[in-house]
Simulated assay, not measured.
Amino acid sequence: MKAARLVSEIVVLSARTQPITAAALAQRLQVTERTIYRDLAELSRIGVPIVTESGPGGGVSLLGGWTSPLQGLTREELDAVLLGSIAAGDLGLGDAQATAHAKIASAPEADTDFARLIVLDGPDWFTAPEAPEALGTIVTALRTRRGLTFVYARGEATKRRSVIPLGLAVKAGRWYLIAQQPGGLPRTYRVSRIDDIGLRWLRAVRPPDFDLGSYWEQAKRGFDSAIRTIPVTLRLAEAHLPDLSRAIPGPLTAEAIAGSWAVDANGPDGGTIGELFILLESVEVAVAQLLTVPGVEVVSPAEVREKLARRARELLDRNG
């Protein structure tokens, strides 16, 4: 996915003698312009000398006669560079990444100074990143197309699984294995809950039509839907919709704002006020989240409205 796309971008830019616009590059690779700009920043960070020119005839190109050193990278070095520093370190590719960076930096006109101005910090604030022991075996299985057997803990229950690994995902420092049992559907496994892992079968056949990126997006939405079951109707100003998104992140919030927020009044400052239907986790979680949204009004249910008012009065009494 991203790794293949970055390689494609280097190949396209290396083959061109004239700049190409971000829009044209996005159309060629079937992604958004925002994705292209993020990729270009990542390529610059690892030393690829990206040049951008504005105005008619402008676009993106490579500096001077720079040529890609990708042919000089080993498979592990290429994997390490394209995965990024956090994932490469967790997967035991730190040395390969250092070697790859040295090779790229030695290329003519490599912009190594720019890389020192960028810090990549994947995990969320206050979240300790994981480096589960099972990752090494999972990577071996993915590369050699082997199956896996392991003990998986869910709550207090444990069960041995035999699966075909389909990919890995890392979110906020947490690693997840996407795999399927033979004849079953793909599932997501938290890698830190995997124990007693080993390789199985000489060759595991993966479904040819499986797309890891699409599956992961659906899995995130499914998790969001599973925990958000309380229907709540809100009224708030359009100016505070971004505050709502920050307080209650997730695809369901974005869909609620895009699909159900409707103007029904004008606020005292001239801005618009609208009504919004949204699903939240529980009454207590809803109250805690909504307290951080300026000017929010709960229309229903009454229990959320009453507890929000009570909490607000308590805070006013203590801080007034």
Rank of each mutant, 00 (worst) to 15 (best):
A4E: 13
L6K: 07
V7P: 00
S8C: 01
S8A: 15
R16E: 14
T21K: 07
T21E: 03
L25D: 09
R28D: 11
L40V: 06
L40I: 00
E42D: 12
R45K: 13
R45M: 13
R45H: 15
G47W: 02
E53Q: 14
E53T: 15
S54V: 08
G55P: 04
G57T: 00
V60L: 02
S61I: 01
G65Q: 09
S68R: 10
L70S: 06
L70G: 08
E77N: 07
V81L: 15
L82Q: 11
A88G: 03
L91G: 00
Q97C: 12
A98I: 10
A105Y: 03
A110G: 00
T112P: 05
L120I: 13
G122K: 12
P123Y: 03
T127Q: 12
T127I: 13
P129D: 07
P132I: 03
T140Y: 03
R143D: 12
R145L: 15
G147A: 14
E156W: 14
E156T: 14
R161Y: 11
R161E: 08
V163H: 09
V170G: 13
G173E: 08
R174D: 09
W175N: 04
Y176N: 14
A179V: 03
P186S: 08
Y189H: 01
S192K: 09
R193K: 03
G198H: 12
R200K: 15
R203A: 13
R206Q: 14
R206T: 14
L212S: 12
W216C: 03
W216S: 07
E217A: 15
Q218M: 05
G222F: 10
F223E: 14
F223C: 10
H240Y: 11
L241Y: 01
P242L: 09
D243E: 14
P249N: 06
P251K: 00
A254T: 02
A254S: 11
A258G: 04
A258W: 00
A258V: 01
S260M: 01
W261D: 05
D264K: 11
P268S: 06
D269S: 08
G270C: 02
G271Y: 01
G274F: 02
F277Y: 08
L280V: 10
S282H: 04
T292D: 09
V299R: 07
R305K: 12
E306Q: 12
R313Q: 08
R313V: 04
L315M: 13
L316K: 00
R318V: 00
G320E: 00
